[in-house]
């Protein structure tokens, strides 16, 4: 097979996978609309666009870690930790907004880097290291707040999470910016190439002279960075911060990232967005037809399982 043929073939295979996912979106919309006509409305579609923003941002972090051959279970807690820390500095210490946000994001990135150190230097299984970190952060968050809710965040800060800019919700704009950067980093930089190679074959990557330890470390630090950005935006979106805010993002990030990674067999930022749309539509749909919220976590588990199995079949691994 010559070079041109191979290229068309790859493009065709990728298009097939996009079609599969978009087909799923259509099926979900048709199914829920037949049960609840209000599902297909401008209002709900607008909500969907806002609701996918934060999950896509955390899932991008998870995707970087997964592409590098790891797994990050502390995404939700880092997200909560960053939002807690920045709002504490804003409300209790009265620091300027920019400084508080910077502290929150720096702390989240630092926690991510600690995860990375445990995985790359101490050789701890990434799942276990981040699970331990999840519980450590849970304890720290209780300790910081004493279980109390933080509210009365400054109005200028809250404005970042609300309203529109040129007709597009602000959160969605944040998401688009991050996805564009993500596409650029994964597909067009040396870092992205090395990351993909790290996840595919660590030994070959090491032998080609790449510092795999530092690559792994930076993947986890980036995940921490994206989670804490999500955490700050979450505080601005919800205007109150509780001890467990952000926790649910671990499962969201995992489902979305695993879904798109399994289907495409590699990191695909646009796949991430479509996967997020599927998850958010399902979540909204289930709450609109009045199903118990217990269903939705179960459904997420089933989707992940199905995506892995289907991914194995279509990628013939």
């Amino acid at each position: 097979m010559n070079d041109k043929n191979l290229k068309t073939n790859v493009a065709f295979e990728t298009a097939k996978r996009y079609l599969l996912m978009i087909g799923l979106v259509v099926v979900i919309i048709v199914l829920f609309t037949s049960m609840q006509p209000a599902f297909f409305s401008v209002m709900n579609l607008r909500n969907t666009i806002i609701d996918i923003a934060l999950p896509v941002i955390v899932a991008a972090g998870m995707m970087i870690v997964i592409a590098g051959g790891g797994l990050d279970m502390s995404i939700g807690p880092i997200c909560g930790f960053a939002s807690l820390l920045s709002s504490l500095f804003m409300v209790n210490a009265g620091l300027p907004i920019a400084v508080s946000v910077a502290i929150g994001i720096a702390a989240g990135t630092g926690i991510g880097a600690i995860n990375g150190l445990m995985v790359s230097r101490a050789g701890i299984d990434s799942f276990i290291a981040t699970l331990g970190m999840q519980f450590v952060l849970l304890g720290i968050r209780y300790w910081l707040t004493g279980g109390k809710t933080i509210s009365r965040l400054p109005q200028e800060f809250l404005a970042a999470g609300r309203g529109d800019l040129i007709g597009i919700p602000k959160l969605t704009i944040f998401m688009i910016v991050i996805v564009v950067i993500f596409i650029f980093v994964i597909d067009y930089t040396i870092f992205g190439r090395r990351l993909t190679s790290l996840g595919m074959n660590i030994e070959a990557t090491r032998l080609s002279g790449i510092n795999v330890k530092n690559m792994t470390l930076s993947a986890f630090a980036l995940s921490g960075l994206l989670s804490s950005v999500c955490g700050v935006l979450l505080a601005a979106k919800t205007s109150t911060v509780t001890v467990d805010s952000g926790d649910s993002y671990t499962l969201d990030a995992l489902t979305i990232a695993v879904f798109s990674y399994s289907i495409f067999g590699r990191a695909k930022p646009i796949g991430l967005v479509i996967a997020a749309v599927i998850i958010v539509l399902l979540t909204n749909g289930f709450s609109m037809i009045g199903a118990s919220p217990s269903w939705i976590n179960m459904i997420k588990g089933v989707i992940m399982l199905a995506a892995i199995i289907v991914g194995r079949i279509i990628n013939k691994k």
């Binding site: 997964i66 051959g69 790891g70 797994l71 445990m118 995985v119 790359s120 230097r121 101490a122 050789g123 701890i124 299984d125 990434s126 799942f127 276990i128 290291a129 331990g132 970190m133 450590v136 996840g199 660590i202 795999v212 330890k213 792994t216 695993v258 990674y261 399994s262 892995i308």
Partner: peptide, 19 residues
């Protein structure tokens, strides 16, 4: 974390979770 760190002391290579 302490337990796992002690248990993996002898093999500190990166353990990947292939997906």
């Amino acid at each position: 974390l302490a337990g796992v760190a002690l248990g993996t002391m002898r093999d500190r290579s990166i353990k990947q979770v292939p997906l």
